[in-house]
Structure formats: structure tokens, C-alpha cells
């Protein structure tokens, strides 16, 4: 069984794995993804059992589940989508823009909780206390 030639003349070399290594990698990644998913489900069950009783513990488990999801994302892109087999420059053009998410998530979630805190204050529940701009008389503008 012959391996393919490059799909396009633009490609200098073909990255290919022989059947044995390929099967081993696929099996390994499938097992990792399944096990991580099962751990995630157990965490979900733990959150359910803990309920709202222990806030800190629930928060820690939610953090753990988030990290596990990122690990799954890494395995899917790196092995199933073969991003790990591409050359470094290309990997960077995908990964570096995604770093925007770090700011994106932090900024918007902080904004959300600040909104909640404002709503819970006396000022937040009274729209009348908002500053209203003074009317500007015509010709008064500088």
C-alpha cells in the first residue's frame, strides 16, 4: 500500500505515519479523551452532590473541569486535526491569535460580576441617581 504523493505541488514534503504508529496514536488519544470525559462527568456529579453547600469546593471542581476541557481541546487539535504535525510557523499563526481569548474571557467575566455588584447596591437599583448631562444652551458650545 503506497503512501500518497503531495496533494499539491506547493507542498515540499509529506508528513506521514506508518499504519502501526498511527493506530497506536489513535487508540491512545481515544482512551485519553474518554477517560478525561469520564472524570469530567464525575466532577459534574460531585458538583451535583455538593449542591450549593460548599461554595469553595464547587468553585475548585469547576476550575478543574475547565482545565480538563482545555486538555481535551489540545488532544483533539494536536492529534485528530494533526496540528501538531504542521510546521512551527503555521502552528503559531493559529495559536497566537487565540491568545486574545485570555483577555476576552477575563475582561468580560469581570465586567459581568461588577455589573452584578452594581445592581445589588442602592445606587444600582435607582436609575434616577444617574448623572444627567446639563442642557447646553445654543451658542454656548466652545
Amino acid at each position: 500500500m503506497s503512501h500518497s504523493s503531495p496533494a499539491s505541488s506547493e507542498i515540499s514534503f509529506v508528513q506521514h505515519h506508518d499504519d502501526g504508529t498511527f493506530k497506536k496514536t489513535v487508540r491512545k488519544v481515544t482512551i485519553i479523551l474518554s477517560v478525561v470525559t469520564i472524570i469530567e462527568l464525575l466532577c459534574g456529579l460531585a458538583i451535583f452532590k455538593l449542591g450549593h453547600g460548599s461554595h469553595m469546593a464547587v468553585l475548585m471542581i469547576k476550575g478543574l473541569v475547565t482545565i480538563l476541557s482545555l486538555a481535551k481541546a489540545f488532544y483533539i487539535t494536536s492529534y485528530f486535526m494533526h496540528l501538531g504535525d504542521e510546521i512551527r510557523n503555521f502552528i503559531m499563526t493559529i495559536i497566537v491569535p487565540l491568545l486574545l481569548f485570555v483577555w476576552f474571557i477575563a475582561a468580560f467575566l469581570i465586567d459581568g460580576s461588577s455589573w452584578r455588584e452594581l445592581k445589588n447596591t442602592a445606587a444600582g437599583s435607582k436609575p434616577a441617581t444617574e448623572q444627567v448631562e446639563k442642557a447646553v444652551a445654543p451658542g454656548d458650545k466652545k
Partner: peptide
Amino acid sequence: SAAIPAGTKWWSGGKSPFNLS
């Protein structure tokens, strides 16, 4: 990352600098 064969000239034209179609 893939091992890049020695002497590969990425920017001489006719090839993808990312080795991708």
C-alpha cells in the same frame, strides 16, 4: 513539529511557506 529537510528554501516561490496547500 515536523522535521524540515535541510536546504529547504521557503521563500524561493512555488512552495507553500507553511508546507500546506
